[in-house]
């Protein structure tokens, strides 16, 4: 059998956008994943989930027609979950991976045909669906760098302040994104490093891996009082509350 290859060209276009060129069409894709519900572009993950849904509803409808089953309308609700979204955000101390863990597809079919007939077409469609097969078999995606980068060298920028924050929900990263952007826009760039718990964050601060930590009151005590008293393996750096001495 002759292999058939689909080729798409994907090019960066703006801050976090990519434009995908396919045959005589093109579409824009935003960030890989987003937790901000007001984010103004469609993410790569949403395209994948949308593609699964479109594959299922269109595939079902086409097959139903072929099997002479009358179908008025097909609609699907797709829900996807990552194994651990916090790993996508690079939260220190989290385990797992950012890959898709589960995709749930619920399909609503409006048809006067008997339910067994609809079920039979449904099963047949599942076996034929490239997207469903892809996701359920979890084919690993191979990514390798190809060719040289087009530009080299960086821009000179102020060294950003490294800000530590504990993340209990991926949505909290949205707040830090907005705050980082505000600081960047006002000439004081900050980069956020996320931690899965305060213990790791305090350790990173004491070791100087981060400059400032957004600490809970207990983390403050842990860092400043108890660790200093215990004199453990960590350097007993003196800590202070930012803004205290202004």
């Amino acid at each position: 059998m002759e292999r058939y290859t689909w080729t798409l060209r994907v090019s960066t276009s703006g801050k976090d956008r990519a434009t995908v060129f396919v045959r005589q069409h093109q579409f824009a894709v935003g960030a890989p994943v987003q937790f901000d519900t007001t984010y103004d572009a469609i993410t790569a993950l949403e395209y994948v989930l949308g593609a699964i849904g479109a594959d299922v509803v269109n595939g079902f409808r086409a097959l139903a027609r072929k099997r002479r089953i009358e179908v008025d309308h097909v609609e699907a609700v797709i829900q996807g979950e990552l194994n651990n979204p916090l790993t996508y955000l690079g939260v220190v101390g989290e385990s797992g991976h950012p890959g898709l863990e589960q995709v749930r597809v619920k399909v609503y079919v409006a048809s006067i045909a008997a339910e067994e007939e609809v079920q039979r077409v449904w099963q047949e469609m599942l076996d034929k669906s490239p997207m469903v097969r892809n996701v359920s078999a979890c084919h690993p995606v191979r990514a390798e760098p190809a060719g040289r980068s087009l530009t080299e060298g960086g821009t000179s920028m102020d060294k950003p302040i490294l800000m530590g924050a504990v993340l209990y929900n991926p949505k909290v990263s949205v707040i830090w994104d907005i705050i980082s952007e505000f600081f960047q826009g006002n000439g004081c760039p900050i980069d956020t490093v996320f931690y899965t718990n305060y213990e790791l964050q305090v350790e990173a601060l004491l070791k100087g891996h981060i400059d400032i930590a957004w600490n809970s009151p207990l983390a403050w005590l842990d860092a400043n009082v108890s660790r200093a008293a215990r004199a453990g393996p960590l350097p007993c750096a003196t800590l202070t509350v930012s803004g205290c001495h202004t």
Partner: peptide, 26 residues
Amino acid sequence: FDHCCFTVRADFPPEREQPFLRVLFS
């Protein structure tokens, strides 16, 4: 009682902390 705070190492250079506070309080 008080809740969260920004904690810094005492040796964090003031010339780096001041811009942070300036933007924060702006």
